[in-house]
Amino acid sequence: MTAVAATTETVSLPKVKTDWLPALLVPILAVAALPLVGSFSTWVTLTVAALAMGMMIFLMASGLTLVFGLMDVLNFGHGVFISFGAYVSLMVLGPLAGWVESPNIWLNIGVLLACIVVAMLVTGALGYAFERVVIRPVYGQHLKQILITMGGMIVAEQMIHVIWGASPIPLRLPEGLRGAIVVGEAAMEKYRVIAVVLGLLVFGLMHLLLNRTKIGLLIRAGVENAEMVEALGYRIRRLFVGVFIAGSALAGLGGVLWAFYRQTLTAGMGMEVNVLIFIVIIIGGLGSIGGCFVGALLVALVANYTGFLAPKLALGSSILLMVLILLWRPQGLYPVAKR
């Protein structure tokens, strides 16, 4: 049998380069902040708060980065799912008010999980409708995508006003999730620890899905070269709808966590966090889940440390971080191959 091998090309084994540097920025940044913060306990509190915030931003942003990577769709209305996810939790908190005030921690966690499940179901369904009605007519037209998805978000905000009213709604954490765990002199809010655990769990599941399943392979391949995936016989449009629904549901999950974190519901909360989400996915590299995760953690760490050390700079810290990252890596931390 003939073999295409007898060349110098196949002699040396190419080395796989694992790019650890962007991921290492997270611990490097955290350690570098320690002497600036001064107190170890304050540093622990700030770092845990930042990790919790980062996980929530990651949950909200992960769907958007895949949607952009897979179909080149700029969905500026992604915040719709965050706001709806948060408000839908009211539908659960009403009937389960007893669980919220119960001293039983399992009932408290149960009500949080119920909020998450219902929010994900509703925002997943909303995502399906949004894709069909708003996104589908404007495939391949970036300017129209920006305009129509922003319009969609404004309409959704007004719908929230109609359904739940225009006034901010206070949201109380379930009884057992209030307060802090004190380790030594460091205080860590219980809810933030739960948010970190949930975020890590979802990231782990996404990692498994993307790397160990055929559907994950298709998503990764589709982000890189959607046309070739179609040429192999797969319907990328169906895959995209599935990813859009999953991304919307994840935004709904993030919305619930974000609402309890802020302890206030406002119709504009999705739009407010939208800017942060776009910063994160640009920093991470459009279409990259790993980049989105690292980007979210970096943004949150910088925001928290800056808020403590130089509060006046806190508002612009994310923008500054994005500028620095893009000067270093113009395609983001982990650019997907085709971009």
């Binding site: 049998m1 003939t2 073999a3 295409v4 091998a5 060349t7 090309e9 196949t10 084994l13 190419p14 080395k15 796989v16 380069k17 191959a337």
Partner: peptide, 20 residues
């Protein structure tokens, strides 16, 4: 048998391969 290099690089990222 046709392309032995593929067996050798089976677990490597395709982006690390040479043009051929």
């Amino acid at each position: 048998g046709l392309f032995p290099a593929l067996e050798k690089f089976w677990s490597l990222a395709a982006g690390t391969l040479s043009g051929g």
